[in-house]
C-alpha cells in the first residue's frame, strides 16, 4: 500500500506541528507535509492533522480566531466529503469552534495548566481512529492544556453517549472512570469525541508525543496505526466492489 499523505496545518502559535510531522513521517513512515494556514487548498492529502499549540495566542477563546484562517474552508469541505481529520488539543478546540465537533472546551476546573501522562479508556474501538485499539483497552498518553474541560448541553451529551461518539475517557491505570482520574473537570471524563459521520476526531491528549520508542511509551502509535489501517480497509473494500 502506498504511503498515506498526512497534511499538518500550521497556524501562527501552533507548537505541536513538528511533533505531529515527526510521528506521522519519521516514526510511522508515512508522507507528512506542513500546510500553512494561509493556503486555501489542502492539496491531495489523505489525512488532516490540526495540531496542538496556542493558535493566535488563544486570543478571545482557544481556537476562535484560527477557524477563520483561509485553510479552514478547505478543511470543512474535506471533512464534509468524509475526509479523515484529527484535531489534537488546540486542534480539538479549533474543530469545536469551527462547528465540526459539538460542545466546547472550558478552562480546567483546577484553573491550572496540566502537563502529565493520563490514562485513556478506549470507549469505541470501531472508529477509523481506534480500529487498532482493544475495545475497553487503556492507553497512556500525555496531556498538556489549560482549557480541556469538555462541556456540552445535556441533549448533545446524550446524543454523544447513545451513538458511541465518545471515543476516549480519562480513567485510572486499571480502566476505571473515576473523578480522581479526571484531570480537567470534563463532563463524563470525556477526553475525545468523533462527529456523527465518524471521520472527524477531536482529543485533548497528545498521541504524537507518545510514538517514539526512545520516549518509553508508544501507545500513541495506536491512533496512527488505526488511521493507516482504516485506509487499508477502504482499499480492500474498493477492490472487492
Amino acid at each position: 500500500m502506498p504511503k498515506l499523505k498526512f497534511g499538518i496545518i500550521v497556524f501562527p502559535g501552533s507548537n505541536c506541528d513538528h511533533d505531529a510531522h515527526y510521528a506521522a513521517g519519521t516514526i510511522m513512515g508515512q508522507d507528512a507535509r506542513f500546510i500553512w494556514h494561509k493556503d486555501s487548498s489542502l492539496g491531495d492529502v489523505d489525512v488532516v492533522i490540526i495540531p496542538g499549540g496556542f493558535s493566535y495566542g488563544d486570543y478571545l477563546r482557544c481556537g476562535a480566531i484560527a477557524r477563520f484562517s483561509p485553510i479552514m474552508k478547505d478543511v470543512v469541505r474535506f471533512a464534509g466529503m468524509g475526509g479523515t481529520v484529527l484535531g489534537i488539543c488546540n486542534g480539538f478546540q479549533i474543530l469545536t469552534e469551527a462547528g465540526l465537533l459539538p460542545g466546547t472546551l472550558l478552562r480546567n476546573a483546577s484553573l491550572k495548566f496540566v502537563c502529565k501522562d493520563v490514562f485513556l479508556k478506549v470507549e469505541n474501538s470501531d472508529t477509523r481512529f481506534t480500529g487498532a485499539c482493544k475495545a475497553g483497552g487503556v492507553l497512556r498518553i500525555p496531556i498538556a492544556h489549560g482549557d480541556g474541560n469538555y462541556f456540552a448541553d445535556a441533549e448533545t451529551r446524550a446524543r454523544l453517549e447513545e451513538n458511541g461518539h465518545i471515543v476516549f475517557r480519562y480513567c485510572s491505570p486499571g480502566g476505571e472512570i473515576t473523578a480522581e482520574a479526571n484531570p480537567n473537570g470534563s463532563q463524563g471524563n470525556i477526553a475525545g469525541i468523533v462527529n456523527e459521520a465518524g471521520n472527524v476526531l477531536g482529543m485533548m491528549p497528545h498521541p504524537e508525543r507518545a510514538c517514539d520508542p526512545i520516549l518509553g511509551n508508544t501507545d500513541g502509535q495506536r491512533i496512527f496505526k488505526s488511521v493507516m489501517g482504516s485506509f487499508v480497509i477502504q482499499e480492500v473494500v474498493h477492490n472487492l466492489s
Binding site: R61, A64, F68, T96, E97, G103, T104, L106, F151, D153
Partner: peptide, 8 residues
C-alpha cells in the same frame, strides 16, 4: 459569529 460562543 465570533465574540461569544453560544455553547458556553
Amino acid at each position: 459569529k465570533l465574540l461569544a460562543n453560544p455553547v458556553m
